[in-house]
Amino acid sequence: MAAGREAQAVKTIRTIWKHRELVVLSLPGVLFLLVFSYIPLYGIVLPFKNFRYDLGFWKSPWVGFRNFAFLFGSDNAWRITRNTVLLNLAFILVMTGVALAFALMLFEVRRRSVRAYQTAMFLPYFLSWVVVSYIFLALLDMDRGLANRILEALGAEPRLWYNDPGPWPLLLLLANTWKGAGYSAIIYYAGLMNIDREYYEAAEIDGATRFQQIRKISIPLLSPLITILFLLAIGRILYGNFDLFYNLTRNSTLLYPATDVIDTFVYRALRVTGDIGMSSAAGIYQSVVGFFIVLAANLVVRRIHPENSLF
């Protein structure tokens, strides 16, 4: 056994030596990740401790699963999980649908117009969420926002946008789609550009209508790409886009019923209560569930399109 292991080690070292130039090329990145991602992993103990600033990591008392009990004992866990999953699911479905539709449409128009549309549709993608939150405020401000001014002009009651959770799932969906659709559409458009022209020409000769071509050629041939992007997104379903949920809602407490997601909750727990143990517990919950979803997603991807599996 020992001899075998030694032989194995020697073999590994030989391999490394043989590829030493490649090892050197990968070294800066690997070292970086080691220092910035792997060393801080010792923070894993936090959810199991009652963290006190004056005692620090190792001396703070162990509390077992109390931090988790706190999280799941209140109705918070259900609310934030529900919001995160439902909103993200809506985001993914709508984004996929809209982007795909835009891509198919871009494919229908001339190259020159494509360029103009691309530039315009891409603009929101370039804005930071901070800037987008300013834009939202300009639209929804209670006293001066454009939306309320239009409502007033129409004789309707102005709404207290930042007080009423009702429309917010829709508003967040709009914001998310608005910011990202242009970008996603270009990805699908790129996929369409890669489809062999001959398929379409053949279909044309057979007298297929344009709509039939979309249904029978474009969409089936895009489906691997759609599946991969979709599954990758599903894998991150427990991770809210913090900027979207925090900045856009201006962290208005009244909107929590509709907009509080795991990430904002964790952030608030840390900021308001200073309770690091509790917020780490929420983080671990997210990681564990996310991990299994990614594993499952990866498994599915490997089945469909092995080259595209993540590992």
Partner: peptide
Amino acid sequence: MKRNRSMHVLCLAAIVALALAAAGC
């Protein structure tokens, strides 16, 4: 706090071992 990677703490027994070893260095 903000980005996922900064808050998505950890998991799994196997990683605990790794983490502790890493923390030792």
